[in-house]
Amino acid sequence: MSMKNFIKSNLPAIAVVLLAVVFMAVGAWRGEIAVVLKKAVNICLECIGIG
């Protein structure tokens, strides 16, 4: 499959990947990674049925 055909047959997926990268960058810029990390490095009491 040539690059042109690959792009043509995967156009929606390429668009979503590009949008995903923008979303991740915006989220990182807003400080969301810190929220994820803070939640993930402490035992999630709700997840294990305590909190």
């Binding site: 929606p12 997926a13 390429i14 979503v16 990947v17 949008l19 995903a20 990268v21 923008v22 979303f23 991740m24 960058a25 915006v26 989220g27 990182a28 807003r30 400080g31 969301e32 990674i33 929220v35 994820v36």
Partner: peptide
């Protein structure tokens, strides 16, 4: 502080699209 989760939504979209 947040009303939408851009970072995780982006990760989900990335894995979904691939």
């Amino acid at each position: 502080k947040f009303k939408f989760a851009f970072y995780v939504a982006g990760i989900l979209m990335f894995f979904g699209a691939v």
